[in-house]
Design a protein around this nucleic acid. Structure first.
Lengths: 108, 108
DNA sequence: TTGACATGACACCGAAAGGTTTCCTATAAG
DNA sequence: CTTATAGGAAACCTTTCGGTGTCATGTCAA
């Protein structure tokens, strides 16, 4: 059974939206304020701000105030909750492959 | 940049719901018909059937008819789309850790 | 053939999600 | 000081989501 920490739900929920995954990719490259992020998407700043709020509530980004700007920084460590959950199935996937392989070998 | 295949969106969307993740765990143990799955959750069969439809549209399960039953089988390979996307950030996460480590060492 | 059982398929609902517009506040810059 | 800029916050709208109840259909068992 995959480990399901408290973090699992908010992280998977955050990852479900393509815009949010795109924002994560952007922030992997460099820290950015809300305005700069919004400029790269075909949607308004408040819409992007909402996505950032979701990411923040999953602890996927950290925000720091710098003058009148608020810099958003990716926290890749928070992705671990999702990675760990999925990792359990990697093993299962391997098992299936092994089973298939042995079945095939037995058949030959 | 993480690889984003056609499969990425449906898979992450499917994983966003806790009930669907629970169903995935169940099916990892053994193949089951809709009714048996529904019996393990506090919701009606049609609700579970909808979740299965979402999982199926992400190719996370395969369905086979057996008499009047429809057996749902997990297809763990479909999780690869999500795993691959996340894998890119594992690298990034390591980089950050290394940077932090060297910063700390420099400081001492 | 007659029920009982397993599902699919709808229609319908309330809540949450994703967006937009509008307005307000705080900091930077002339 | 005054104005432009960055961003928070609230009100509102439409669509999707997660669920329910109901009904029709195909299959298994007496």
């Amino acid at each position: 059974m995959p480990l399901t920490t408290d973090q699992t739900q908010p992280v998977f929920r955050a990852l479900a939206d393509p815009t949010r995954r795109a924002i994560i990719m952007l922030l992997a490259d460099r820290d950015l304020p809300v305005g700069d992020i919004a400029a790269r998407f075909e949607m308004t700043r408040p819409a992007v701000a909402k996505h950032l709020a979701v990411l923040k509530s999953a602890d996927l980004i950290h925000v720091s105030q710098a003058g009148r700007e608020r810099i958003n920084q990716l926290n890749p460590a928070a992705l671990k909750a999702a990675t760990d959950w999925l990792a359990w199935f990697d093993r299962f996937w391997d098992d299936r492959l092994a089973a298939l392989k042995s079945a095939v070998e037995k058949d030959t």
